[in-house]
């Protein structure tokens, strides 16, 4: 879509968003969940722009429904341009699992871009993770979990500001997070968080 091309071009012009595949990692067609630190509205775009085009079309960013379905412009960007999956950030009264839309996408064989902190943070290193990543990992044991560190983006468009400062941002993809049998939820989430911090 033209808007996606425009947004990718703009992202590259402003912040570079050059990919670095760290260590033994390399882009591949295997189904993945890319999980990254979250500090700005450019995060999704930066990670998405850093992926090779043929992987990008099968990779869907996860976006918060309470924010991204507000207003026709946000909807246009999130749903039409980025092909995002919208999820509720809180469990509603109706008892529906908020992860349900993501499970559907993963069952279709697509990859996901996921921010396990659930909201934007101001600092360079990720804050504590919500449990979503753990449940997805349990349910899909064969999907590769790829930690991604987005450098500098907290300086480019911090929470609360409306105008970007163009600084060079690298998108660092780390090696696939190994699975450990019978790991507790807390231990898994801490290990996943450390995998991102290790790329910083």
């Amino acid at each position: 879509m033209w808007l996606a091309t425009l947004l990718i071009g703009l992202t590259r012009a402003l912040v570079g968003a050059t990919p670095r595949w760290v260590g033994s990692s390399a882009p591949s067609h295997a189904q993945k969940i890319y999980f990254a630190n979250h500090s700005s509205h450019i995060d999704t775009l930066a990670l998405w722009s850093a992926l090779p085009a043929d992987l990008r079309i099968r990779t869907r960013p996860v976006a918060a429904a309470d924010y991204w379905s507000q207003g026709s412009f946000r909807k246009l960007v999130a749903v039409r341009a980025l092909n995002a999956v919208l999820i509720e950030r809180t469990r509603g009264d109706n008892g529906v699992d908020p992860l349900q839309p993501l499970i559907k996408v993963l069952e279709q064989g697509d990859s996901l871009i996921f921010f396990p902190e659930g909201a934007r943070h101001r600092q360079a290193l990720p804050g504590p993770f919500k449990a979503g990543l753990y449940y997805l990992a349990m349910r899909f044991p064969n999907v590769e979990l790829v930690p991604v560190y987005l450098e500098n983006l907290h300086r480019c468009l911090p929470k609360g500001s409306w105008f970007p400062v163009p600084l060079i941002c690298t998108v660092r993809f780390g090696p696939v997070l190994p699975r450990i049998a019978d790991e507790s939820k807390a231990a898994f989430l801490e290990r996943a968080r450390n995998a991102i911090a290790a790329l910083a």
Binding site: R122, N152, H154, R155, P158, S161, F163, V165, P166
Partner: peptide, 23 residues
């Protein structure tokens, strides 16, 4: 300028000044 500021530590309080410099 982008290169220079990428390597220069600034804080979120500088955000407006930096936008001003660029734009």
């Amino acid at each position: 300028l982008r290169e220079f500021l990428t390597l220069t530590p600034t804080r979120s309080g500088d955000h407006r000044a930096l936008s001003l410099a660029f734009f």
